[in-house]
Design a protein around this nucleic acid. Sequence first.
DNA 1: ATGAAAGCGCTAACAA
DNA 2: TTGTTAGCGCTTTCAT
Lengths: 347, 347
Amino acid sequence: MDTSQPPRRVTIIDVARHANVSTTTVSKVLRNAYGASPEMRAKVREAIAELGYRPDAAARGMRGQTYTIGVMLPTIRNPFFADILDGLTDRLRDTDYQILLGTGGDGEDTEERMTDAMIDRRMDGVVLIAPVSSRARLEQIAGLVPTVIVGRHGNSPLYDVVTDDDFVGAALVVEHLSALGHRRIAHIDHSETDPTRLLEMPNAVRAEGYRHAMRAHGLADEIDIVATSYTQEGGYIGAQRLLARPRRPTAIFAGADFVAMGVLEALAEAGLKVPEDISVAGYDNTTFAAFAPVSLTSVDQAGHQIGSNAARLLLERISHRQAPSSQVKLTPKLVVRGSTGRPSVPD
Amino acid sequence: MDTSQPPRRVTIIDVARHANVSTTTVSKVLRNAYGASPEMRAKVREAIAELGYRPDAAARGMRGQTYTIGVMLPTIRNPFFADILDGLTDRLRDTDYQILLGTGGDGEDTEERMTDAMIDRRMDGVVLIAPVSSRARLEQIAGLVPTVIVGRHGNSPLYDVVTDDDFVGAALVVEHLSALGHRRIAHIDHSETDPTRLLEMPNAVRAEGYRHAMRAHGLADEIDIVATSYTQEGGYIGAQRLLARPRRPTAIFAGADFVAMGVLEALAEAGLKVPEDISVAGYDNTTFAAFAPVSLTSVDQAGHQIGSNAARLLLERISHRQAPSSQVKLTPKLVVRGSTGRPSVPD
DNA sequence: ATGAAAGCGCTAACAA
DNA sequence: TTGTTAGCGCTTTCAT
């Protein structure tokens, strides 16, 4: 028979007793709140250290804050999200807030489960990265907990938004390719039909930026978008379709580095050389793009800055729930590498 | 002046009133606990649905469980961890448990902050992936919360362990390269000095497996380990050092696909062709290894299985805290791809 | 099978 | 400035 009791955790009462003060005083010290003399603070801190006390975040949450920030991302597979997370982490490192991550998958239902879970756990704020949920749902969440939306366009008075200018980013790619002499520049997009998402999701904005830039460069007739999905497989399939065109493109602009991976795979399979036979560009400037043997021209979104801005906005919103919402839009820049070059057969 | 109140959340009391039952009964229904008639259950469920009630996880945690599982991983940058996470997620999907992730970084201090945070939030259980903390610390954690350690060798009566046989995995690589005719097979390891970790960390076990296999194949004199770090940069630097050897290796076995990325980068820079001039093998069989233009021979650890086993063990431990601890060791398999071939200059 | 009441560890309102 | 006390929303005794 096992009689070993799981040792009871040290509570605020133990600390108060040990320091000969009230729990209120201990609580004030914990929160750096007003109303405790320096001597009291010292005594309490000593007791805390001696007893190895740690406040119970769940219990704190019952009355005050949980000191927990929830970050939802679609998947941990995309290394670009790691950059954003680093930015968030760096900005929150010296605060009392703790970041916990949750994956939202790519459906409204799985996102709902995750965001509900964060709310149920009384998180003090949430950062939602590229969420696919409806506007209404996002506003519902924002009504319940301070919320910052990252990587999804469209404003709301209820939440703050941090985006990178996807419209401009796509234009940068088209401009670059056009300057190299390309005319038949195709684009691989993530298939989307929902009207709100068609306006707000980054992929849709990139596609729109592509269209606009093509027209601006007198290439309206060459606009060629294949809508598959923002995955490696989507890129693979998309490239295969493009290669089957009677007049096949001389350059492929994939909506994400991930997608470009699939494109490169398909091209390798077809025996085509990059960039000699065909140019390829991606988006996100992930480590994969920078990897020398790949050397993918890509659009850099400064994920770290996106993250630190999101953290800043969230902290502001937590302290001023009713403040007007703000939108931060960052400017992307093109990173030219070896995967793009002049078209072999001039058009 | 903003008079809009944040709408009070529906509580168990509201549900009880709405259904004309006691809160106790509602609680029983929530937990599928014994002691509520079918009619009661139906009534309560109806009230829950009508009011859109969701139990407050933080409050539940005060007395019972939080239905939260914490998963700590060193970084979200390594795609291999995503496989493990998928395994965990799949196994927990149909339970009431919710997974929240935390990054532990690569230091004992940052891991401590993260694990403390999970404990403070009263998580029902934690899965620690490749933790670097001391044995004592791991056992301390396990004493406070049901714990499963993944990817770190060494048993403890206090926690369960899931590993893949790194010793065998390393041997598979050496065998393969040796069979191809290689003799000068070098290995890039993560530098480690702590004696416990030297026994328990996967990289150390892989290095040991490499040494053992080299000796077993009569290549004791060719054992050549460069200790840098398990990062892309570590691979890059390690490869540069190996290339500077008077008799340089004909094959490099990198301790992780990530490391192999750096190796390939260095080789490309040095103008060496893979596998014609030099063979390269990795570990983890990530999507990167499978990527056709890279086509990296690698060791598959079946991350999904690792994850689902970890979830299973954790659920068992949560329901039987005092049960003897168990260790699951999975067997790796080699995936041969284009990055390994016969040495050009026979030894 | 059902319900009343205590209490988990903390913070906020109030008193001294 | 300091302490006392009443909850936060649940689950868990313990009656009935």
